[in-house]
């Protein structure tokens, strides 16, 4: 598999690469959470990352906007390498949106204020422009009527859709999803997935950590399977689900697909 990813990197040097990870390693204290991660993501590519809990999936995508620091290797996002340079980190974070498992909306601000805060303070947009853009994205996630409410007044599915709209308001080039449906009641998962599918079809570069295999089949260009901090297997969804190569992948798939 290491060979395959090396080829991938080469191939993309000519094309448009959105994210590139080269030999990334990370430790929590003594514990080696990410081991020799090589991954290249093209613009417009949609990647689903799955794997058992504790396999480093979330850590991996949290390294991409530097919510976690990696200790060796290179991470290059949109042409910016992530180092200790705070300006670079800010530049990357402006262009990379993130949706969290627990939504992380700001409870003291209304839905609209949640969406306009970063455009106003980071992008320096005028309040009117930011609000117009926010209403556009709230309409896109189908909850414009909740704009004046506080997050605490919304259901989980609605909150997650607001969180997606909040990220989109920054006009990101890349979207990261960290288990966006894992904290939702079953009947709310669908409404969030619909928004994500819609986003995928609009050509957004997306990295999703998720266990929604239906979603992976429907929109992913590539599925990546991680275990114990390594990328074990990556393939097109059809190949991945119908013809898994590694034993660990087979075991994992047999446990989650009934």
């Amino acid at each position: 598999m290491a060979q395959a990813s090396a080829q991938k990197v080469e191939k993309n040097e000519a094309g448009e690469v959105a994210i590139q990870l080269l030999g990334v390693n990370k430790w929590y204290g003594e514990f080696h959470v990410l081991r020799d991660i090589n991954l290249s993501v093209d613009r417009g590519e949609r990647i689903v990352i799955c794997g058992p809990s504790g396999s480093g999936k979330s850590t991996l995508i949290r390294c991409i906007n530097r919510l976690e620091e990696h200790q060796s290797g290179q991470i290059i996002v949109d042409g910016n390498e992530l180092t200790n340079d705070l300006k670079r980190i800010d530049e990357v974070r402006r262009e990379v949106g993130m949706v969290f498992q627990h939504f992380n909306l700001f409870p003291h601000l209304t839905v609209l204020e949640n969406c306009t805060l970063a455009p106003i303070w980071v992008r320096k947009m005028s309040k009117a422009d930011a609000e117009a853009a926010a209403m556009k994205y709230l309409t896109r996630v189908k909850i414009p009527e909740q704009a004046k409410k506080y997050p605490g007044q919304l259901s989980g599915g609605q909150q997650q859709r607001v969180a997606i709209a909040r990220s989109l308001c920054m006009n990101p080039k890349i979207m990261l999803f960290d288990e966006p449906t894992s904290a939702l009641d079953p009947e709310m998962i669908k409404e969030v997935l619909e928004v994500m599918v819609d986003l995928a079809q609009s050509g957004m570069t997306m990295l999703c950590v998720t266990h929604e295999m239906g979603f992976a089949r429907q929109v992913a260009n590539r599925v990546i399977f991680m275990d114990q901090g390594q990328i074990i297997e990556q393939n097109s969804p059809v190949e991945f689900f119908n013809n898994p190569k590694s034993e660990r992948t087979k075991l994992f798939l047999s446990q989650i697909l009934h």
Binding site: N65, R93, R94, G97, M98, F100, N104, A118, V122
Partner: peptide
């Protein structure tokens, strides 16, 4: 984390 991810 949400604030940082938005680039604040």
């Amino acid at each position: 984390e949400a604030a940082q991810a938005l680039g604040l």
